[in-house]
């Protein structure tokens, strides 16, 4: 009804224009980056590439993908992303569910909540974390990549707040049916919070996919790097101030095209996964889930 009024129609036109403009503003740099990644290194290094490749070539991609470690790194990244997202989502869903209880029904909840919030702000830093991981003998295992960052407190708190929005009537009804906490979580809370779960999964997926520094720290064998870490190693980094170069070394210095390709590869999972997850953002699904 409302969308038939003249005022709303005018608003709609402006709205579409504004949103298109915002979309454009965000996609232009991406196009620029794509253009750089497909350009010859000389114009790219000299910042002469705009929105269209100059001296089109695929070298930055072939260079990256021809590397014998590429496939392996890609697979390890997949494994890490799958495992990491699974662990994170399991852990924060369980914890988020419990914390969404009010303190009247679960007295310890406040203490637990602060326990987690505290770690959002205070962290021991690289060296102690490294010592912990090493003493757990997790070095060179995939667990060193997925466990230390598994508890995403920010996401946990968001999820908890989404859970809080679950109508208590539903929970009570389930209780009457004799359901336990796990049943309530999986049959009542999760279906209702699907948009939030999809969001947190997305954050976790892109986070795992793009994390690279932990790979450098915790994986001693560079053949076992996940993709993001591997891509970092593709970029030639030289301390020029002390460089007494070999001609052969110098030829390899064409960072910008490779960097651009790397950014694009980092974005890929979003382009692949996000459209799929977006179906959970559709309004109305909530009621449908409850009806059954």
């Amino acid at each position: 009804m409302y969308h038939k009024t003249t005022g709303y129609r005018i608003f709609s036109v402006f709205n579409y224009l504004l949103l298109s403009l915002a979309g454009l503003l965000c996609v232009l740099p991406i196009i620029h980056i794509l253009a750089v990644s497909f350009s010859a290194s000389a114009p790219a290094n000299s910042h002469l590439v705009g929105l269209w490749p100059v001296g089109f070539n695929l070298e930055s991609y072939t260079k990256t993908m021809n590397n014998p470690n590429f496939i392996r790194a890609f697979l390890i990244a997949l494994e890490r992303t799958a495992l990491g997202t699974f662990i994170t989502m399991s852990v924060i869903t369980l914890a988020g569910y419990v914390l969404s209880k009010d303190s009247a029904s679960f007295k310890s909840r406040n203490a637990y909540a602060w326990y987690f919030v505290f770690t959002m702000l205070f962290s021991g830093g690289i060296i102690p974390s490294y010592i912990v991981v090493r003493n757990l003998h997790l070095m060179d295992t995939i667990w060193a990549l997925v466990l230390p960052g598994a508890v995403q407190v920010f996401n946990m708190i968001l999820l908890m707040n989404f859970f809080k929005a679950t109508p208590k009537e539903l929970e009570e009804a389930a209780l009457i049916d004799g359901a336990g906490h796990f049943t309530i979580l999986f049959r009542v809370y999760l279906p209702l919070a699907m948009p939030a779960v999809a969001t947190m999964s997305l954050f976790s997926i892109v986070g795992n996919w793009n994390a690279w520094f932990d790979g450098l720290l915790y994986i001693n064998d560079y053949r076992n790097y996940p993709l993001a870490t591997f891509l970092q190693t593709i970029i030639v980094q030289q301390d020029f101030s002390k460089l007494n170069p070999d001609v052969n070394e110098l030829k390899n210095i064409s960072q910008r095209t490779v960097k651009a390709a790397q950014i694009f590869i980092g974005i890929l999972p979003v382009l692949v996964v996000y459209p799929y997850l977006q179906k959970y953002f559709v309004k109305g699904i909530v009621l449908g889930a409850v009806k059954e």
């Binding site: 690289i126 060296i127 490294y130 010592i131 090493r134 520094f213 450098l216 720290l217 001693n220 064998d221 560079y222 790097y225 970092q232 190693t233 970029i235 980094q237």
Partner: peptide, 20 residues
């Protein structure tokens, strides 16, 4: 140990080795 030396990874590792 062997590390791919990018983003000062070798330096970081050396310091971690010293520190721990």
């Amino acid at each position: 140990w062997v590390v791919t030396d990018t983003n000062d990874a070798y330096k970081t590792k050396l310091r971690l080795m010293l520190s721990s």
